[in-house]
Amino acid sequence: MTSNWLDLALAQLGNKYYSPGAFVAFIFNSTHVHSHVKSGKWSADLVDLTYDVYELNTIENTNPGDLLFWGIPEQPYTTGIYVGGGQFIAVDANDKRVKMQMLNKNWLPTFTGTVF
Protein backbone atom coordinates (compact mmCIF):
# COMPACT_ATOMS: atom_id res chain seq x y z
CA MET A 1 0.00 0.00 0.00
CA THR A 2 1.31 3.42 -0.86
CA SER A 3 0.51 6.62 0.98
CA ASN A 4 -0.51 8.26 -2.29
CA TRP A 5 -4.22 8.03 -1.40
CA LEU A 6 -3.53 9.51 2.04
CA ASP A 7 -1.55 12.42 0.60
CA LEU A 8 -4.41 13.23 -1.76
CA ALA A 9 -7.03 12.85 1.00
CA LEU A 10 -5.06 15.18 3.28
CA ALA A 11 -4.77 17.70 0.45
CA GLN A 12 -8.60 17.77 0.33
CA LEU A 13 -8.97 18.96 3.96
CA GLY A 14 -11.34 21.93 3.98
CA ASN A 15 -12.63 21.30 0.44
CA LYS A 16 -16.34 20.79 -0.17
CA TYR A 17 -17.87 17.61 -1.62
CA TYR A 18 -21.54 17.01 -2.28
CA SER A 19 -21.43 13.68 -0.44
CA PRO A 20 -19.12 11.40 1.59
CA GLY A 21 -19.28 8.87 -1.25
CA ALA A 22 -18.16 11.45 -3.81
CA PHE A 23 -15.10 12.22 -1.67
CA VAL A 24 -14.15 8.53 -1.26
CA ALA A 25 -14.68 7.79 -4.96
CA PHE A 26 -12.55 10.79 -5.94
CA ILE A 27 -9.66 9.73 -3.70
CA PHE A 28 -9.51 6.10 -4.80
CA ASN A 29 -10.25 6.72 -8.49
CA SER A 30 -7.62 9.50 -8.62
CA THR A 31 -4.94 7.33 -7.03
CA HIS A 32 -5.81 4.29 -9.17
CA VAL A 33 -6.82 2.08 -6.25
CA HIS A 34 -9.06 -0.44 -8.00
CA SER A 35 -12.39 -1.41 -6.58
CA HIS A 36 -13.58 -4.99 -6.36
CA VAL A 37 -16.24 -4.51 -9.06
CA LYS A 38 -15.55 -5.50 -12.66
CA SER A 39 -15.05 -1.92 -13.90
CA GLY A 40 -12.43 -1.27 -11.21
CA LYS A 41 -13.92 2.20 -10.64
CA TRP A 42 -15.30 3.44 -7.34
CA SER A 43 -18.88 4.69 -7.16
CA ALA A 44 -20.03 7.77 -5.25
CA ASP A 45 -23.17 5.90 -4.15
CA LEU A 46 -22.82 4.61 -0.58
CA VAL A 47 -24.59 1.30 -1.23
CA ASP A 48 -22.37 0.72 -4.27
CA LEU A 49 -19.30 1.43 -2.14
CA THR A 50 -20.17 -1.55 0.06
CA TYR A 51 -19.87 -3.70 -3.10
CA ASP A 52 -16.70 -1.93 -4.29
CA VAL A 53 -14.65 -3.07 -1.29
CA TYR A 54 -12.98 -6.47 -1.22
CA GLU A 55 -14.47 -7.58 2.07
CA LEU A 56 -16.74 -6.24 4.81
CA ASN A 57 -15.29 -6.39 8.32
CA THR A 58 -15.83 -5.34 11.89
CA ILE A 59 -14.23 -2.26 13.38
CA GLU A 60 -11.75 -4.44 15.30
CA ASN A 61 -10.22 -5.62 12.00
CA THR A 62 -9.81 -2.18 10.43
CA ASN A 63 -6.55 -1.13 8.79
CA PRO A 64 -5.43 2.26 7.44
CA GLY A 65 -7.04 2.86 4.08
CA ASP A 66 -10.17 0.85 4.87
CA LEU A 67 -13.57 2.46 4.56
CA LEU A 68 -15.66 3.06 7.66
CA PHE A 69 -19.43 2.85 7.29
CA TRP A 70 -22.28 3.95 9.52
CA GLY A 71 -25.60 2.20 8.97
CA ILE A 72 -26.16 -1.26 7.55
CA PRO A 73 -24.61 -2.67 4.34
CA GLU A 74 -27.93 -2.36 2.52
CA GLN A 75 -28.42 1.23 3.71
CA PRO A 76 -25.27 3.05 4.88
CA TYR A 77 -25.74 6.73 5.62
CA THR A 78 -22.12 7.92 5.69
CA THR A 79 -18.55 6.77 5.15
CA GLY A 80 -14.98 7.86 5.73
CA ILE A 81 -11.43 6.63 5.14
CA TYR A 82 -9.62 5.23 8.17
CA VAL A 83 -6.17 6.77 8.59
CA GLY A 84 -5.02 4.90 11.70
CA GLY A 85 -4.61 5.82 15.34
CA GLY A 86 -8.37 6.26 15.74
CA GLN A 87 -8.52 8.96 13.06
CA PHE A 88 -10.44 9.09 9.80
CA ILE A 89 -11.01 11.55 6.98
CA ALA A 90 -14.59 12.24 5.94
CA VAL A 91 -17.01 14.85 4.69
CA ASP A 92 -18.67 16.61 7.61
CA ALA A 93 -22.46 16.26 7.47
CA ASN A 94 -23.06 19.89 8.50
CA ASP A 95 -20.83 21.95 6.24
CA LYS A 96 -19.91 19.33 3.56
CA ARG A 97 -16.18 20.00 4.08
CA VAL A 98 -13.51 17.31 4.35
CA LYS A 99 -12.21 17.05 7.91
CA MET A 100 -9.93 14.85 9.96
CA GLN A 101 -12.05 13.29 12.69
CA MET A 102 -11.57 10.99 15.68
CA LEU A 103 -13.47 7.81 16.35
CA ASN A 104 -15.24 7.88 19.69
CA LYS A 105 -17.36 5.44 21.65
CA ASN A 106 -20.50 7.53 21.04
CA TRP A 107 -20.22 7.40 17.23
CA LEU A 108 -18.44 4.24 16.09
CA PRO A 109 -18.90 2.86 12.59
CA THR A 110 -21.08 -0.22 12.36
CA PHE A 111 -18.89 -1.98 9.78
CA THR A 112 -15.81 -1.45 7.65
CA GLY A 113 -14.70 -2.38 4.17
CA THR A 114 -11.25 -3.65 3.24
CA VAL A 115 -9.79 -1.70 0.36
CA PHE A 116 -6.19 -2.95 0.19
Rank of each mutant, 00 (worst) to 15 (best):
M1N: 12
T2W: 00
T2Q: 11
T2D: 09
S3V: 14
S3E: 11
S3M: 10
W5R: 01
W5H: 05
W5D: 01
L6G: 00
L6I: 10
D7Q: 06
D7E: 11
L10P: 06
L10F: 09
L10S: 10
Q12P: 01
Q12T: 02
G14A: 07
G14L: 07
N15W: 01
K16V: 11
Y17F: 15
Y17M: 02
Y18L: 10
A22S: 13
A22W: 04
A22L: 09
F23M: 10
A25V: 06
I27R: 00
F28K: 03
N29L: 05
H32E: 13
V37P: 00
S39G: 07
W42A: 06
S43Y: 10
L46N: 06
D48K: 13
L49M: 14
L49A: 05
L49T: 03
Y51E: 10
D52H: 11
V53D: 04
V53F: 04
V53R: 03
V53T: 11
Y54L: 15
Y54D: 14
E55A: 09
E55L: 15
N57E: 11
I59N: 02
I59D: 00
E60G: 08
N61F: 13
P64Q: 07
G65P: 08
D66K: 06
F69G: 06
P73K: 08
Q75N: 15
Y77D: 10
Y77V: 11
T79V: 15
T79Q: 03
I81K: 01
Y82G: 04
Y82T: 07
Y82I: 09
V83M: 12
V83T: 14
G84N: 09
G86P: 00
G86W: 03
F88H: 11
A90P: 05
A93R: 13
A93Q: 12
D95F: 05
D95V: 09
K96S: 13
K96E: 03
R97V: 01
V98M: 06
V98A: 02
M100K: 15
Q101A: 11
Q101C: 07
Q101E: 13
M102R: 15
M102S: 15
N106W: 09
N106T: 11
W107D: 11
L108N: 10
P109R: 04
P109Y: 10
T112Y: 01
T112R: 01
G113A: 06
G113M: 07
T114F: 10
V115M: 12
V115L: 11
V115G: 05
